[in-house]
Structures are given as structure tokens and as C-alpha cells.
């Protein structure tokens, strides 16, 4: 008797096809969101607010109601959606440029207000969709199209560590940084996404997950090399871990 151990999550649209570049970890991140929604049984009750960048196409794949809030306003729009419909599950899905540069005010103030929302931020250290420009999370020394000699502190300053900043906000219930470079880390990422969703379902506050992802096209690397870069260059700077978890005190 054979048992099915893997299937496309029920939360996905029929006949979807990802439009990301080959090897892009956005696909894994969205699949994990779909799997978590299946496990929590919340798809019918979910409203997503999407951003600008490669993450914008979320609503082409997930079978949920979604509202487009480009240029960093995802969490501002999500705040309105959640306050008007407190019984709905509301989450945002954005990239690092959207969350931590264009929309840093909206993002951090949603956390400071302790909005009952879940936010997912994909950190690939560059602006992927627009051609690989220097972003808020670009590593020191990293060559991009707008930092051709590499990011240096004197001219560009330091990269932002988003999960730590969100964890410092008093309204935050859960803040974690995860990676998708290995199977083990993919499983940990799913647990973190589930926790960030559950804190909203229990009304504990703001749930946040920063996901270290790859951009093989703009890094000019093969998908496998891109994962090695995440391990060797990104993870020592953006250290994965749980930075705040209020549920530890509750249970």
C-alpha cells in the first residue's frame, strides 16, 4: 500500500506555473506558506496584501483573496484590512527592498502598534525584479549594478538586520530569521512561518519571519552556487534564529 508523502498544497490555484527564474527560492517560500495555510485550515478566511518586486506575483499562485499594495505599503493596507475585518486572517509577503527600504516606516510602525498581522520578508540582498540594484540588505563588498566596486561603508553605510529590528518593537510577538539553503533549514522555515501565523490567530501581536533567499540571476551564479553564497556569506551576517517569541513565557 503506497502512501502519498508529498503533494501540491490545496491552497494553490489549479494549473499554476511559477514565473520566477530557475532556482529562485521564492517558489519554496510560497509553497511553505501554502502548506502552513493547509495545516491551519485558514485559506478560506485569508486576505493577503502583496508588495512590489518579484513577491508581487503571490496572488497568481495562492488561491486566496489578495490586495495589491505596492512600494512598501503592504502592512499599512493590511492594517486597514485587519481592523475592518478582525475575524479574517491577514498576512503580507514582500521582499527586503519593499519591507525594509521603501516601506520601512509602514513595516516597523505596524510592529510597534502590535497589529495582529503576519508578515513575511524575503531577503535576497538585492532588488531582484528591477535588475539587481543595491538594496537595504546588500552585504558589504557585494557588487551590484549600482555599486559596481562593491558596497563600502563610507559611501553606502551598513546593511539592515530586519529580524533584529522587528524584534526590538514592543508590539512584536514573534520575530525570526530562517534560511532555505538546505532541506533542514526549509523545514525550520516552515515551523517559523507557522508560528508567525499562529501568533496572529491567537491575537498575541505581530508575527514576522525574514527568509534568506537566493537571486541566481542577479548574483550571476548557478542555483547551487547561490545556496553556497547564502551559507558562506549571508548567514554569518544575517544569523538565522528566533529573536523574539512571546509564546515562550505563555506555555
Amino acid at each position: 500500500m503506497e502512501t502519498q508523502v508529498f503533494k501540491i498544497p490545496e491552497s494553490f490555484k489549479k494549473d499554476f506555473r511559477y514565473t520566477f527564474c530557475p532556482g529562485c527560492d521564492h517558489g519554496v517560500a510560497i509553497r511553505l506558506v501554502g502548506e502552513v495555510m493547509d495545516e491551519l485550515g485558514i485559506r478560506e478566511n485569508t486576505i493577503a496584501a502583496t508588495s512590489i518586486g518579484c513577491s508581487v506575483t503571490l496572488y497568481d499562485f495562492l488561491d486566496v483573496d489578495a490586495i495589491e499594495a505596492p512600494h512598501g505599503r503592504a502592512l499599512a493596507v493590511a492594517t486597514g484590512v485587519k481592523r475592518a475585518n478582525p475575524d479574517k486572517f491577514v498576512f503580507t509577503y514582500s521582499g527586503d527592498g519593499d519591507f525594509a527600504s521603501i516601506g520601512l516606516a509602514e513595516s516597523l510602525h505596524a510592529a510597534l502598534r502590535g497589529e495582529s498581522l503576519s508578515a513575511i520578508c524575503i531577503n535576497n540582498t538585492t532588488y531582484g525584479m528591477t535588475g539587481g540594484q543595491l538594496g537595504p540588505t546588500t552585504l558589504l563588498g557585494q557588487v551590484t549594478t549600482t555599486s559596481p566596486t562593491g558596497r563600502n561603508v563610507e559611501y553606502y553605510g551598513y546593511p539592515i538586520k530586519i529580524a533584529e529590528h522587528v524584534a526590538l518593537c514592543d508590539g512584536t510577538a514573534f520575530s525570526a530569521r530562517v534560511s532555505l539553503d538546505t532541506i533542514v533549514n526549509i523545514r525550520k522555515a516552515k515551523q517559523a512561518i507557522k508560528k508567525a501565523f499562529e501568533v496572529q490567530l491567537h491575537g498575541l501581536g505581530f508575527g514576522f519571519v525574514e527568509i534568506l533567499s537566493t537571486c541566481p540571476t542577479n548574483w550571476h551564479m548557478s542555483p547551487e552556487q547561490a545556496h553556497e553564497r547564502v551559507r558562506n556569506e549571508m548567514m554569518p551576517v544575517f544569523v538565522p534564529g528566533i529573536y523574539k517569541d512571546v509564546t515562550e513565557k505563555l506555555f
Binding site: V5, F6, K7, I8, G23, V28, I183, P223
Partner: peptide, 21 residues
């Protein structure tokens, strides 16, 4: 083995089903 490691890794969900016998 039906371990589904390939499907867990696949970023495009091209491995749509895994069965363990």
C-alpha cells in the same frame, strides 16, 4: 526511498507528487 527530499528542494514544485511504498 520516497523521502521527498527532491520535492522539498524543488523551487518550482515540478515534482508534484511523491509516493512512499
Amino acid at each position: 526511498l520516497g523521502c521527498a527530499l527532491c520535492a522539498t528542494r524543488c523551487p518550482d514544485m515540478a515534482i508534484t507528487e511523491v509516493y512512499k511504498g
